[in-house]
Amino acid sequence: MVKIGKAGKNIFLVLLAALFFLPVFMTVGMSFLDNNMPTFQNYADLLFDCFVFYPVFWNSVLYAAVITIIGLLVIIPAAFGFSHAKFKGKGALFIFYIILMMMPLQVTILPNYIGLRDLGLINTRLGIILPACFSPFGVVVMSRYMQSINNSVIEAMRMETNSVIKIIFHAVIPQIRICIFAVVLFVFADCWNMLEQPLLFLRDINLQTLPVFLSNTEKYAGSVLFPAAVLFMFPVLLLYNFFSDSLEKGLTFGDLS
């Protein structure tokens, strides 16, 4: 009796997983179908007849890569500062970061827009890149993770050097590698997915990103959409495959208290 219940549960879990995977599978499937006949024509239509796709694709790559790299340069020191600096109001500042992290884009986008407008960065690539680099998510996750690392290595290192940069490179980064991978995956996937900012900050089609391309469904031939969606997923899937082991071990920020 108990055995059957267990087996049933396992089968249920497998079916559920299949159901969750179905959209990905179907997107790939649809990209190779034309009137229910298998074909490569959709890909030919996209790659050899839809040239808007290329600049848009490379824009997405550029934004996501640059934001991830600059983001890390901001996030790692900030997280280090949060876990090692002692100052009044640190707890309050950290809660401020958490709240900011939780703010929906529709709240932060207007302040972003106003900040960018005052700096004259509307309709420029920097306008997309700069605000995203300072997203508080990575700082919160990494600060939490740093609380669990071994501080004796850092203390030992301080005997030898006074340089914070050296300490971060040699004593901190090796210990938080997994967390860095998880944050990279998250930040990259998030920027790759960016829709609202390019939609509202950019007018030039040459600066746009793939989600904006995919949201203009009526502007392009129907056959190019599914191949574009597949090529759009592909880089994140590769990155996921590369870093997936780090996700659970790196994202232990569930308990913030």
Binding site: L47, F48, F51, Y54, F57, W58, F234, P235, L238, F242
Partner: peptide, 30 residues
């Protein structure tokens, strides 16, 4: 497995570069 992943990534981006440069010429030739 990791190596395979890197190779696929490189092939993917390399072909995107090649396509970006050549796609319009191929299209025009046809």
């Amino acid at each position: 497995m990791r190596v395979l992943n890197i190779i696929i990534t490189l092939i993917f981006f390399a072909s995107m570069v090649v396509l970006t440069v050549t796609a319009r010429d191929i299209h025009n030739a046809l």
